[in-house]
């Protein structure tokens, strides 16, 4: 069976900095794979390479057997890859339903003239868009907000809207960039079951970037760990957890002479500073 997404030896360098080197992955149809790594490891860069924001220096990307590397982002989206953004990028001034409708427009066939003349095909397509988008909002549980401006939504709902918008393009592969970032435990639990249900409901394969280890270990079938752009481990959640290289990447070298600098004096408890440090 052809993989939904087959990535082979993908590399990208920014000047002298190797952002991603030799990244490979084969995501089967209906699979749910995870991509993790410390901050700045190059996870989002991988997503940007896959969706055409950056052109890879070497390597290939195949979406259901079709080469897509080097294509433009909009062509890749049409080919069947959709993504959400880590730093939310909604169409802020537009209403929630219009955000989703905009994305659904990719699958329409009527061009400018049909639009301006309101031909039967155009009218039918617009009706289909509205119908499908309302169903999407229902799946994501944000129907009650359909007429609100996207920028006025609470954070969690903005993340849900991002997913609804991505699904509206009818993707075969869905890339989720930190879908539960900034959510509380309750919302995370909802999102977990939602992500799992998406595969069956929409027949998509999912590649997930997430810092929430509980979530990743729970739902992903296979996890790839990268650090400084290099793949350091691939395997089931259990294998990855026990991998010494992964532990090293996240926690540092156990033998080294205490890599975390400890304050010799009692730490200054300056409230605003402490708050900033957490962010």
């Amino acid at each position: 069976m052809t993989a939904a997404l087959a990535i082979k030896n993908l590399s990208l360098a920014f000047g002298g900095l190797k952002a991603v080197s030799d990244f490979s992955l084969a995501l089967p149809p209906g699979g749910l794979y995870g991509l993790i790594g410390p901050n700045g490891a190059g996870k989002t860069t991988v997503f940007n390479l896959l969706t055409g924001v950056y052109k890879p220096d070497t390597g290939s990307v195949e979406l259901v057997g079709k080469r897509i590397d080097g294509n433009k982002p909009n062509q890749i989206a049409r080919a069947g890859m959709a993504r959400t953004f880590q730093n939310i990028r909604l169409f802020g001034e537009l209403s929630v339903i219009d955000n989703v409708r905009t994305a659904a427009g990719v699958r329409t066939k009527s061009g400018l003239f049909r639009t301006l003349l309101r031909t039967p095909l155009h009218v039918a397509e617009e009706r289909a868009i509205t119908q499908r988008c309302l169903e999407l909002l229902d799946v994501l549980g944000i129907t009650h907000r359909q007429d609100e401006q996207a920028k006025s939504l609470p954070y969690g709902d903005q993340r849900r809207l991002e997913i609804a918008r991505a699904l509206a393009t009818e993707p075969k592969v869905l890339l989720l960039d930190e879908p539960v970032a900034g959510m509380n435990t309750q919302e995370k639990i909802q999102m977990r079951s939602l992500i799992q249900s998406l595969r069956e409901q929409f027949g998509v394969s999912i590649l997930l970037i997430e810092h929430d280890m509980g979530l990743v270990m729970d739902i992903c079938e296979q996890i790839t760990v990268i650090d400084h752009g290099v793949t350091i481990a691939v395997g089931s959640p259990k294998q990855v957890q026990d991998n010494p290289a992964v532990i090293e990447a996240y926690l540092g070298v156990p033998d080294a002479e205490d890599p975390i600098p400890r304050p010799t004096e009692p730490p200054q408890t300056d409230a605003p500073d402490a708050a900033e440090a957490k962010v």
């Binding site: 909009n74 989206a77 959709a82 219009d98 409708r101 905009t102 994305a103 427009g105 639009t115 301006l116």
Partner: peptide, 27 residues
């Protein structure tokens, strides 16, 4: 008609966020 159609919403999307518009398949 343009404003309340897919073609028009594509224009609005370009105004709102060009990177997201590209990622949603809008040329």
């Amino acid at each position: 008609r343009l404003k309340y159609s897919s073609k028009g919403r594509a224009l609005l999307a370009v105004r709102e966020n060009e990177i997201a518009a590209e990622a949603m398949g809008i040329d």
